[in-house]
Amino acid sequence: MRKRLIQIFGFLVSSLGWVFVLCSMAMDYWRISQIGGQGGSFIIKVAWYWSNLWKDCFTDSTAVTDCRDYGVLWSVRYVQAVRGLLMCGLTIGFFAVTCCFIGMECTYIGGEQQTKDKLVVSGAVFHFVGGERGA
């Protein structure tokens, strides 16, 4: 019974870490900077520049937002490295969640106990390699 509880808790925590990595891919405000607002009215001269992994945006004081998508994926060096690492981590994390789910003691898929234990260990290794270390 204790082994099952530990496996279920570990599965939930590691799956939650995978979901957090997935959510970070969709966040809009990775980098924010304020432009203007010095020596005059904040209403007229202020604007915000923000970007994420997919686009650059510019919002002025009238709340008009102008966005530019990254046209060529390999044109931005550092953004591409982060984007690639996150996608690799998500793919490896998906395999980790699948291996851990099949290998848990409380599921009826996966065969005999020794095979299930190997699946759980390989799922844990995939989680560490993919970067999802839990909440």
Rank of each mutant, 00 (worst) to 15 (best):
M1G: 07
M1L: 04
R2C: 01
R2A: 04
K3V: 13
K3N: 08
L5R: 09
L5F: 07
L5C: 05
I6Y: 13
I6M: 10
Q7L: 04
G10N: 14
L12P: 02
L12W: 04
W18H: 05
V19Y: 09
F20K: 00
F20E: 07
V21Q: 10
S24A: 03
S24F: 07
M25S: 03
M27A: 08
W30H: 06
R31C: 01
Q34H: 05
Q34S: 09
I35F: 07
G37D: 05
G37T: 00
G39S: 05
F42S: 02
F42T: 01
I43L: 12
I44S: 07
K45V: 03
K45S: 14
A47P: 00
W48A: 05
W50T: 04
W50F: 15
N52W: 05
W54L: 08
W54D: 04
K55P: 00
C57K: 02
D60W: 10
D60F: 08
D60Q: 08
S61W: 04
S61M: 06
T62L: 11
A63Q: 06
C67A: 09
C67M: 02
R68A: 10
R68V: 11
R68D: 14
D69E: 07
G71C: 01
L73A: 12
W74L: 11
W74K: 12
W74C: 06
S75E: 07
V76Q: 12
R77E: 11
Y78P: 03
V79N: 13
Q80M: 15
Q80E: 11
A81F: 14
A81W: 15
G89M: 02
L90P: 07
T91W: 10
I92G: 06
I92D: 06
G93F: 10
F94L: 13
F94W: 09
F95Y: 12
F95D: 04
T98C: 12
C99V: 00
C100K: 05
F101P: 01
F101T: 12
M104L: 09
T107P: 10
I109A: 13
I109P: 00
G111S: 05
Q113W: 08
Q114A: 15
T115H: 12
T115Q: 14
T115P: 00
D117Y: 03
K118W: 13
L119N: 03
V120I: 14
V120E: 06
V121T: 08
S122A: 12
S122L: 14
G123S: 04
A124G: 14
A124L: 15
F126W: 02
H127T: 13
H127A: 15
V129T: 10
G130E: 11
G130Q: 04
G130L: 04
E132H: 10
E132G: 03
G134N: 10
A135T: 10
